[in-house]
Structures are given as structure tokens and as C-alpha cells.
Amino acid sequence: MLSIVLKNKRLINSYYKMKLSCEGFINALPGQFVMIKVSPHYDPLLRRPMSFHRIIPHHPPFKKGGRGEFEILYQITGKGTEIMSNLKEGNKVDILGPLGRGFWFPEGIEKAIIIAGGIGIAPMVALAEEIRKRGKGQGSRGKIIVFIGGKTKDDILCKGDFEKIGANVHIATEDGSMGKKGVCTELLKEWLIAHGSLLMAQLSIFACGPQGMLKAVADISINKNISCQVSLDKNMACGTGACLGCVVKVKNRDSRLYKCVCKDGPVFDAGEILWEEI
């Protein structure tokens, strides 16, 4: 599917945000992703997976065929993302999506805890916006607490986006240049202790970030018996479940040892993943 770059700008350091539009865009869910062909050449060959950072509802008035817009938030980490950063307004890029299984919304949740490290924040803005939308008119429901972690203050993105929708934001940086010095999983632990009177069944954790961080969050959630969803990141080729290249080991419930991150995920129940062997 061809889509048009509406905006592409650097936020800070190697972090960029791109806004795209495409004909008749299908409804996407937070946690889902697109595969982007960053150039028509054979090197880089494969598409690059990128999460929906913001899903913008169709703007009335509808143009012929309808038009959807979405944003991605990305970090330059190699040649593909480097090429992306040079795309200009009006350029066309080929996207495949929406792909994968996104976040789901358990019944009876009072508070959503979002925790993200580094570029893992990308899908969380779309998620927070969706939670906010669903919680409208439901009193205290839909309360969002956000924990963001990064190396330095320049790695803390989207703070304002969360605050704008009324979320409670907690920050940790490894060098202490913003928020608390340390890692955001420690902040989460402290918060849970301070809110020990809350019913754990009324909390739901949504996590995205480096594998070590996700494992720590999964440990916390399993210990405290809090529902927890993690968005995983694996090298991908097809993005559709055809190549079996992006697998992750799961606890062997239905006799399948591996699941595809692209099709069965990227969002998984933290309790399903075999964290020792990730």
C-alpha cells in the first residue's frame, strides 16, 4: 500500500517522528505495526517493522475513498532508519499493515500502568489515547500511570503527550539528568509498594522496551499477580507469519514451542513467554 509522507522531523538526537497518510486506511489497534519498505532498491532489502505511534481517526470531510493518517516514532539505528530520516514531505513509501495482534483491554481494570524504555515508548501514546477513549464517562476508570526510562534526559520522549491526556508520568534516567536516577522498573516497584492497598486485579500493566526491562516487568507482574502485556521486538522478514523467522519461545501450553512475534504478537501476555530463554 502506497502512503505519503506528510511530515518527517527530528525530535532530538537520533529520534524522529513521521506522519503518513494512506488511501482508505484500515482501522489499526495500538500495539499493531506496519512493515515499511524504506527504499525501492535491494539494499536494504527487507521491510522495517514500525509500531503505530499515533492512530489518527479519519478526518471529515472524507475524500474520495477515505484517507487515514498515522504517526510513527523512530530511532536511527542502522541503514534502514537512516534512509527513513531522509524522507521528505510528499515522498511515497510502501507500507504493509496493520499487522500483528495489538494490546487488548481486560474487563474491570481501574488503572492502566504503562511502562516503556527508550524507543519502546513509540506504541504507548496510541495505547494511552485508546485507554483514555475507552475510559470516558466511566469515573475513575481509565486512569493512566506512565513510567518512562532512558539513559539520559534526551532519551525521555513523549512526556508531554501523556500529560496532555491527564496521565500521571514518572521518569527515571540512568544518569539522573531527569527524574529519578536509576531504571524505571525500580520506580514501578516503589509505586506498587506505596499503593499496596490497591487491588492488584484492578491493575493492568502494558510494557514495551529492551528485553532486560521487559523481563524485569514480567517478574514484577508475575510476583504480584498483575495482568501484564509486553510488546516484543524480533528481527522480521515477512511480518505476516509466513517465514517463521521472528519466533519467541513460549511456555508449552498448546504444544507449540515457538510463536511468531509478527502474527501471534507482537503483544503477548507476560506469563506466556519463556523469559529464561528469550
Partner: peptide
């Protein structure tokens, strides 16, 4: 099948 990582992109190709 084999443990991951199972794929890596190379110049104009990929290994699986």
C-alpha cells in the same frame, strides 16, 4: 526448528 535469532539481513539478501 532452531532457536532465534533465525534471520539476518545481508547485502541484497538474507540469511535464515
Amino acid at each position: 526448528g532452531n532457536p532465534p535469532p533465525r534471520i539476518v539481513e545481508t547485502e541484497a539478501g538474507m540469511l535464515n
